[in-house]
Nucleic acid binder design. Structure first.
Length: 212
DNA sequence: AGTGAACGCTTTATGGCCGT
DNA sequence: ACGGCCATAAAGCGTTCACT
């Protein structure tokens, strides 16, 4: 059967390069290009895929939380992270969260092919070779989808009441989830939870301060 | 796992009282 | 009038328990 490969990257040129590499590794593969996380999801929903090549920052996605969400929704799908970052800790974080591989955008076409071939063969492939495991990321990964939504609200600086309104649930429920989140993350307050969760932004440029 | 109510704790805001 | 102090109220946070 013809393999389906989804490439999610918001740079058309790089998508093209990846598609080229994919064609070498999966001859005859049907390549679906997506320029946003939403498009990638649509492609996956339409017919699944043998592999997803995922850029971590696109217009509608930021950081490793996209990876985490997709891992949750498609546990069996090998996801190869394609990142502008070279940092070993990014690769390590991706590995921790269940990525099948990590390819820096600076990698040569040969290196990209090598990586994809490894993943196709069922092996993990990380260009930088990953550093030690990060307990915090493992903890974050253990959060349920509801808990993650609430953590996202906390990270935005929202009050429990505001988070409850956004998610259309009661404030009491938000508090209950937060208790579970704090326990899973091993921290004592929402502010500490925010600091732990900041590790998900490992692939992000430093955020601009909000306009006053 | 998700939800919500009841409860206690801490912090912040408010208002009254006092001595200077 | 003023600054300092204390009691009270209100808001927000987090825990526990019970129900679905």
């Amino acid at each position: 059967m013809q393999p389906r490969i989804v490439i999610a990257d918001d740079h058309p040129l790089f998508r093209g390069a990846l598609a080229h590499a994919v064609a070498r590794v999966w001859p005859g593969a049907a390549v679906f290009e997506a320029s946003s996380a939403a498009e990638a999801r649509a492609a996956l929903q339409a017919g699944g895929a043998e592999c997803l090549l995922l850029d971590l920052h696109m217009a509608d996605s930021s950081g490793l939380s996209v990876l985490m969400d997709l891992r949750q929704d498609y546990p069996a799908l090998p996801i190869v992270i394609v990142s502008a970052s070279e940092e070993p800790r990014v690769a390590a974080a991706a590995a921790q969260l269940g990525a099948a591989g990590f390819i820096p955008k600076s990698a040569s076409l040969d290196a990209i092919r090598e990586g994809l071939a490894a993943v196709q063969g069922g092996d993990a492939w990380f260009a930088e070779g990953h550093a030690g495991e990060d307990d915090d990321l493992a903890r974050i990964a253990s959060l349920t989808p509801a808990q993650r939504r609430i953590l996202a609200g906390i990270r935005q600086g929202l009050l429990n009441k505001q988070i409850a309104y956004e998610l259309s649930i009661s404030e009491a429920t938000v508090k209950a989830h937060i208790t579970a989140i704090l326990r899973k993350l091993g921290v004592g307050s929402r502010t500490q939870a925010v600091l732990v969760a900041a590790k998900l932004d490992v692939d992000q440029p430093v955020a601009e301060p909000a306009q006053a």
